[in-house]
Design a protein around this nucleic acid. Sequence first.
RNA 1: GGAGGGAUACCCGAGUGGCCAAAGGGAUCAGACUGUAAAUCUGACGCGUAAGCUUCGGUGGUUCGAAUCCACCUCCCUCCA
Length: 430
Amino acid sequence: MDILKDLQRRELIAQIAGEDLTDHLTIGHRTLYCGFDPTADSLHVGSLIPLLTLRRFQLAGHRPLIILGGGTGLIGDPSLKSTERPLRTRQEIQALGEALHPQFTRFLDFDSTNKNGAAIINNLDWLEDSRLLTFLRDIGKHFSVKAMVNKESVRGRIERDDEGISFTEFSYMLLQAYDFLHLYRQYGCSVQIGGSDQWGNITEGINLIRRLEQGTAYGLTTPLLVRTDGTKFGKTEYGTVWLNAGITSPYRFYQFWINTPDTDVYRYLRLFTFLSGDKIDEIERSDLNAPARREGQHILAREVTRLVHGEEAMQSAQAISTALFDGSVGDLDTQQWEQLALDGVPSSQWGQPQISLADALVHTQLALTPRGVATAGQARKFICSNAITVNGTKVADPQHTLTYNNAMHGCYHLLQRGKKQYHLLIMTRR
RNA sequence: GGAGGGAUACCCGAGUGGCCAAAGGGAUCAGACUGUAAAUCUGACGCGUAAGCUUCGGUGGUUCGAAUCCACCUCCCUCCA
């Protein structure tokens, strides 16, 4: 399989550095890398693009390296960022790095007995001990400030009157170039991939390798994802969609993909799944005949959730979705209710044997006014305007009261406002 | 330092003595239609079941009655030095 052709068909290539990259990848099995700086305690859906691209390369026989930016994270990448970031402490960076570590292992094969087994390497290992004078003489001499200043990734910061850039951040591209050089020397790593914001950093690395090693290295960037409606990819009303199941539940994750607009779904299938291009075209064709089925969204949600959280979590996310959106809440068993309570929907407890529906809507914050406050008046309005569903049944009676008796399994009341806002009220018994 | 203009609800913005809880637009939320979509239409959008209560930068004042008039204060903008 021609990996580049596949990537191209999937629209995964923004830019390529090195004209003969195809030959390079065809002639032999190569080592490539992508860096991830620990800027949060979880990766998010946006990180999936480079991560899955590494996997695509691995499936094509190449060896992927993940560089955990324990060193570069201490400096901060200014690329295409409009403001200077505050420095994080070493402890913070280390903690974030440790949190990210397990997330990488899911997507690649780390079997070291395989020739192309993946590895995770922390660039703190070599950046930590580099010596300032040596670095400035041996590495710094090969960088032209003029060229660096002209990089699109920092030009905005330099040209704007109201924003600046510290030398610390400005030096970031030297470190990343140095990483590439180090990996080229130590691991024979000849290809770097990254998001399109990394283009400048990647090409500097390639230049450095050419100058110091007379070697040829390559770069490939993936496009910046923008939804067709112009909103930022990976953000929802619930915030960023993270890969960590403890932060973004598998159910919420599944829902994120289910809600993909039609205009984006086939592109996402290409970008985020390992279904073949032909298969995806086929899905698109069949959806054209039956758009109401939204086969594309379901397949997308299934595939990506399985990939990130595993078969079991995907199944339960799917079961919860079906129960919630097809109004068959009564079908849920105790175990599924417990899971819903755990991370499926927001939930809270109520320690008394009854509560009026209106009060419950205030208590659970579902009766939110446009200003963002939950009030009794708003609760009544919602109930009277037919917006409230309790355990799958519309309730329009403002006097309705929740009790043990009308609860599911004696304690669960699934409150729903509108189509998508849920809250699980659990009535506890003393 | 001098001259002028301004501050209205989440945002923009109309309102210059009562008919103002305050036009209009956007955002948000709900309903209808749908496919857990888009578009569209309808409704809600200070708090309160209601009577009513609290709002128009702040503090006082004039008035039967103030977002509106007066005084002072705070902040913003423009022009002249």
